[in-house]
Design a protein around this nucleic acid. Sequence first.
DNA 1: CTGAAAGCGCTTACAG
DNA 2: CTGAAAGCGCTTACAG
Lengths: 329, 329
Amino acid sequence: MTRPTLEAVAARAGVSRATVSRVVNGAANVKPDLRTAVMRAVEELGYIPNSAARSLVTRRTDSIALVVSEPPSRVFSDDPFFSAVIRAVSQQLEAADRQVILMLVSSAAGHARVERYVAGGHVDGVILLSMHGADPLPASLGRSRVPIVSHGRPASSLPVPYCDCDNHGGARAAVEHLIAQGRRRIATIAGPRDMTAAQDRLDGYRAAMGAADRPSIVAMGDFTRESGTTAMQQLLADDPEIDAVFAASDLMAIGALGALRAAGRRVPDDVAVAGFDDIGLASFSEPPLTTVRQPVADVAACIVQMLLGDEPPTAPVILPTELVIRESA
Amino acid sequence: MTRPTLEAVAARAGVSRATVSRVVNGAANVKPDLRTAVMRAVEELGYIPNSAARSLVTRRTDSIALVVSEPPSRVFSDDPFFSAVIRAVSQQLEAADRQVILMLVSSAAGHARVERYVAGGHVDGVILLSMHGADPLPASLGRSRVPIVSHGRPASSLPVPYCDCDNHGGARAAVEHLIAQGRRRIATIAGPRDMTAAQDRLDGYRAAMGAADRPSIVAMGDFTRESGTTAMQQLLADDPEIDAVFAASDLMAIGALGALRAAGRRVPDDVAVAGFDDIGLASFSEPPLTTVRQPVADVAACIVQMLLGDEPPTAPVILPTELVIRESA
DNA sequence: CTGAAAGCGCTTACAG
DNA sequence: CTGAAAGCGCTTACAG
């Protein structure tokens, strides 16, 4: 028993294949009686259109690839931010009746795999997430005629449409808050150099510090919790007088919290800590984290709109962030 | 500029489409000079076969759906066990040159979506993960002619092939270890009733306790850390004399560790704790967790073999677990 | 070893 | 409003 085809439905309903196709695809102009006959046949036979045949002619697959340039360990377990973004994007895409194909790529073999997959016509569009530096994906995918939208500003100079939150402004607001609290020596724990979100947040920090005539104190991290701990330890060793830290991600801020606790510093009394992202954990840390909320759902909606909308996106879209003040600063 | 077709490659190489197809698909019998001519044309044109056209005739897609019956929050952030399984399965599938389509389903709409996707011929096979009780998926997917293999014994009576670890034996070994340590009152924190892994581990606990003539002490959890904390608190309240706990998952064991610490009990001095899974966190908990290691990679390899192997699987496969003794028991 | 031709299961102008 | 027919881009018997 193989799956029934359009042909079988047509035979059963006593109409042509064209009519069945119209009914199945919801075309308006079919007489009610024929329509019901077809629908009954579809029902009785359990007909579901063959997607390969359909997309061969329509040149659509109703699938969108969500390509994340990170290893599985980071996406699945380490960083809840990915989970939040993936969920938000998936939800938007499902609402638009598109299937999400999640592809993680963290190797050259992975790049080749994604490229073949996209070029083979498996998807109608690609969303790029967490690109690093000179990520080869925009260029290689650009060769297929498939629309691409990046989640976050891409580092490459290629004109890839993107939506991002206001990393610069968000960071600046957090640091200004620290300054307004009367903090004297405010350091930052920056994210990885090869990511624009990290660069922009660092720039925001510098802008706020510069405007207040303060010198910058920068430690490097890579957005992970461990790196936040290490960076904080180093900051403390280098300059014991530090009384505030702006970490470019919540995970790093939480790592910093641990290092401060281990060093016997009270937060926020001795050292104020602010993060970025507002992941779920930020409310549950000890103490709860003051942070910059990314509009995850809005960015996701924006990206899907850019990808699926009628007119191709022209300008990037930057969405505002929100400073969430809790107890750590 | 649209993507080149077989036709274009054939024209450029001066051969028929059949020959191009043979070269592209690695058929043996093509004269070397024609083969090189075709390969050059493929290279020059950047030809990549259209997958819809190909799978329309071959009836293959080289994609496998990995269907996880859990909400995104659990899969992405909460439980590292999923991450481990997904990674292991993906790796096996990629090694076999198959694309993994990850589908999370935690609603009726999700079920319908998956069913349509599979029935539409998008995938060559389905791997079911984390099924709960009377999961409707085996039945509804069974109607498509697509091979299915379950990760873990399914609860339903349908004859779905599966591979699982020895949940019963693993649990029993852990409890016997606790008994051998001279523990007197050994409780268990069980997993969700509607999952066979939880049932089997509970049975293993009971078997070991029964064999040693001890009464069972059972608290219910749902495999999450929070539930482990709650269950442990309740256990302590009900029976302060408890001196050992076997938790049916590491996450619950870690939750129990927290509850014990909060209650001022030392581990393992006052209360011994054993878990199940051996997730990465198990080595880093305070104290490091004695647990039952699941052969995640082996199970993944076995499942992929069952799905892709030449002959359809007949009997289920049960793989052995390993007791990993650390400091908590 | 190679090519002409049929056909996979759909959709969509085109007539009527 | 409906149907006959062409065609999407491949693969694969079938001849030669």
